[in-house]
Amino acid sequence: MKKQELIHLHGLLAQVQNHYEQDTGSTVEHDEYAELGVKPTSIHKSKTDHKAAVFAIADGITSEMTAEEKEPVSAAAD
C-alpha cells in the first residue's frame, strides 16, 4: 500500500472513530495510538508511522466495539 493510501485510510478510520463516539456517547480509548503522535493530517510522517497508526486506531475501535457487545443489555440501555 502506498503512503498516500495509508494516509487516506488513516483519515477514514479517524472519521469512523468520531462517528462511533458521537453515536454511542463513549470515548474510544487507545493509548498506543495517542503515544504514536501520528494524525491523519501528519503528512510529513513516514509510511511506517502511518501504518502503525492505522493498526493502533483500528485496534482501539474494534476493542471498544467488542467491549460494548459484551456489556449486559440493561447497562447498554442506560
Rank of each mutant, 00 (worst) to 15 (best):
N18A: 11
S46P: 02
T27W: 13
T48Y: 04
G60K: 12
T66A: 10
E21L: 02
L9W: 10
T66G: 04
A77V: 06
A14F: 05
T62H: 12
Q15R: 15
A75C: 08
E69D: 02
A14V: 01
T48P: 00
I43Y: 04
A53K: 06
D31S: 15
Q4K: 06
K51N: 03
T41A: 15
Q4I: 05
E71W: 10
Q17H: 04
T27I: 15
A52W: 01
Y33A: 12
E64L: 01
P40Y: 09
E35G: 04
A58D: 02
T62K: 06
A52S: 13
V38M: 06
P72K: 13
A53F: 12
D23I: 00
H19F: 03
T24E: 08
M65Y: 02
A67W: 04
K2E: 04
H30F: 04
Y20T: 07
K51A: 15
E29D: 04
D31T: 15
M65Q: 10
A76M: 09
T27C: 11
I57C: 08
K45R: 13
D49H: 10
K47N: 11
S74R: 13
D23G: 02
Q4V: 04
L9R: 12
E71V: 10
V73W: 12
T48H: 09
Y20H: 08
L36S: 09
F55T: 12
V38S: 03
I61L: 13
H44I: 02
A56K: 08
L13R: 06
L6V: 03
A76N: 09
S46K: 07
I7L: 03
A58S: 12
G11T: 07
I61P: 02
S42D: 09
M1S: 03
V54H: 11
V28S: 05
P72S: 11
E71S: 06
A67K: 15
L36F: 14
H8E: 10
E32K: 14
S46H: 03
S42M: 00
L6A: 00
E21W: 01
E21Y: 00
K3I: 00
P40S: 15
D78T: 13
G11A: 13
T48S: 13
T27G: 07
M1Y: 03
L6M: 04
E21D: 05
E64F: 02
I57Y: 11
E21N: 08
K45P: 00
K51R: 12
M65H: 00
A75K: 15
Y33G: 08
L12Q: 14
K51V: 03
Q15D: 09
T66M: 09
E68L: 05
A77C: 04
A75M: 14
V38Q: 06
E29N: 15
K2L: 00
K45E: 03
V38L: 05
S46V: 01
I7H: 05
M1G: 07
Q15G: 08
I57L: 15
G25H: 12
S26A: 11
S42K: 05
A77H: 06
P40V: 10
Q4R: 03
Q15T: 04
V54T: 09
N18W: 06
E5D: 06
A77P: 00
S63D: 07
I7W: 07
K70L: 12
M65E: 08
G11Y: 00
T62Q: 01
H8P: 00
V28P: 02
I61R: 08
L12E: 14
K51S: 12
H44A: 09
N18Y: 09
A75D: 13
